[in-house]
Design a protein around this nucleic acid. Structure first.
Lengths: 106, 106
DNA sequence: TTGACATGTGACCTTTTGGTCACCTAACTT
DNA sequence: AAGTTAGGTGACCAAAAGGTCACATGTCAA
């Protein structure tokens, strides 16, 4: 699996995107803290965090018995630059092409 | 499932991203034509195209016995604006925050 | 009008994913 | 030292995803 693929797959789950949102709002949270914000057991959350970590979207620091989670936006940046940008640049022209291709039935 | 979720899930599969790339290069292709570019039977490709269509990423026009596929970049634009942008804006500051949080062990 | 071509459908199968749980270790607290 | 708290592991399960196939429909071409 490529790096990009790992990132896209990590972003495909709404719970994981929500976890990223939580870390966006405040970084350095522990597993237990994140667990309390989600309707799911600790184990489920831990699995999601692991996938996010493997995708490079979350970085972790151990502090005693706690595990602190930090957001890393770089992979999102990368898929943005390498992939998404390409599709969002053609705004107008693409829509016009499409409309022409489909004919003008409003 | 939300619209955003459908789009993220649609983008999560490499074959589907490849199909979008094909349509990006040239729109208006038929199923058979797309099939020939992928190591997969017609049925698999048709399933992927259906998901892309349900996510609004692909629009279709029937022409006789053929089905022509067109790219619609709008949903990508939307998740870009509503979600990805938020994470890619904080470039520098986020990295600095992270580095500070992690300590300075280079 | 017969045959070839383009696509659709539903059954089916295997692998992956999302989630839980019992049990374990390590680290604080008192 | 004993109890409590934070987290990790592996087994397990149900549901969803990815893919194939047999068969069926509609359309074009000779």
């Amino acid at each position: 699996m490529t790096d990009d693929d790992r990132v896209f797959k990590a972003l495909a789950d709404p719970t994981r995107r929500f976890l990223l949102d939580l870390l966006f709002a405040r970084e350095g949270r522990t597993l237990t803290e994140l667990e309390s914000e989600v309707e799911m057991t600790r184990f489920g959350v831990a699995k999601h965090l692991k996938l996010l970590e493997e995708a490079g979207l979350v970085v972790v620091r151990r502090s005693g018995r706690e595990k602190l989670h930090f957001l890393n936006p770089v992979p999102i940046r990368l898929i943005h630059d390498r992939w998404i940008d390409k599709y969002t640049e053609r705004h107008i022209t693409a829509l016009v092409d499409l409309k022409n291709a489909l004919g003008d039935e409003t």
